[in-house]
Amino acid sequence: MTVQLILFFILAIVAVLTAVGMLVSKNAVYAALYLILNFAAVAVFYLLLNAPFLAVAQVTVYAGAIMVLFLFVIMLLGAEKLGQSQVQAWQRPLAIGLGLILAAEMVYILVSGAGGLVVASQGTTINPDFGSPANVGMELFTKYLLPFEVTSVLLLVAIVGAIVMTRVEKK
């Protein structure tokens, strides 16, 4: 347990630092690299939580595929240097206010246990095999079939949209 706790805190520090690094770095390539490290840290969190399938899926999809496309676009456009963004005067206070509300909501839900969030009490046993590919697949295609299929239709729409957008109109 203690080893897990130490690992958790090291990972948490890495995750927070990389997230902050992504926000403050002036170079878009560095920001993308920080985000990749952040995704990797989250993947190791999944491994600590006994969910190897989610961990490798996280690395393949987010750290592997999506961020490569990000980097590709940044390099293709030569958009490494971020210019001075035009910040409207009212944007910053609004962002701080909304962020505080979100944080307050999170604390409230965690403390009160509202929204169906159950904190695992001492002695509750979870099947250690719950994160195996077979079990994840079974859950997805039985209990969560409708959300799963809706997500796939959403992705299909996005693919069709991307193809339509890139088509050259013939006159």
Binding site: I36, V56, A65, L71
Partner: peptide
């Protein structure tokens, strides 16, 4: 491990970064 094949694809998808970053 029970996700052996996925591990292979995950790690090989990371290998792209070395080449991309070398080029940039």
């Amino acid at each position: 491990i029970n996700v052996g094949m996925l591990y292979i694809t995950a790690v090989s998808s990371i290998a792209v970064y070395g080449i991309v970053l070398a080029g940039w």
